[in-house]
């Protein structure tokens, strides 16, 4: 980061785990001056309706994403491989969260 004053706070992506959720889910983004403030802003903006019990935040610029241009080479080849799904097995009753 440069030492020059910035006109706007950096963008953060917010992930919240709900009371009944097992994993953090992306819920949106916000601006904050630093990581600690981002967690607090996330609490104020995204958990005020009793949604969450845990928050992750990450600087948006730290996320590396796949490009829309690569959509076909990335994802199309798995479109017809039905045998990769484990749907041909019966799941035992005592295996949770499947």
């Amino acid at each position: 980061m440069s030492e020059e004053p910035q006109a706007e706070w950096p963008l953060y992506e917010v992930f919240v785990r709900g009371k009944r959720g097992l994993n953090h889910v992306h819920v949106g983004s916000l601006h904050a001056a630093d990581d600690e403030m981002a967690v607090r802003h996330a609490r104020d903006v995204y958990t005020r309706r009793n949604e969450g019990v845990s928050i992750w935040v990450v600087r948006a610029e730290a996320i590396t994403a796949s490009s829309p241009d690569e959509k076909d080479p990335f994802f199309a080849p798995s479109g017809d491989k039905v045998y990769r799904h484990p749907t041909f097995y019966a799941i035992p009753d005592d295996v949770p969260h499947m």
Binding site: L30, H31, H41, D44, V45, R48
Partner: peptide, 11 residues
């Protein structure tokens, strides 16, 4: 000053 503080104060 910004949307996030606005909601924080409203809370």
């Amino acid at each position: 000053p910004d949307l996030e503080e606005d909601i924080a104060l409203a809370n």
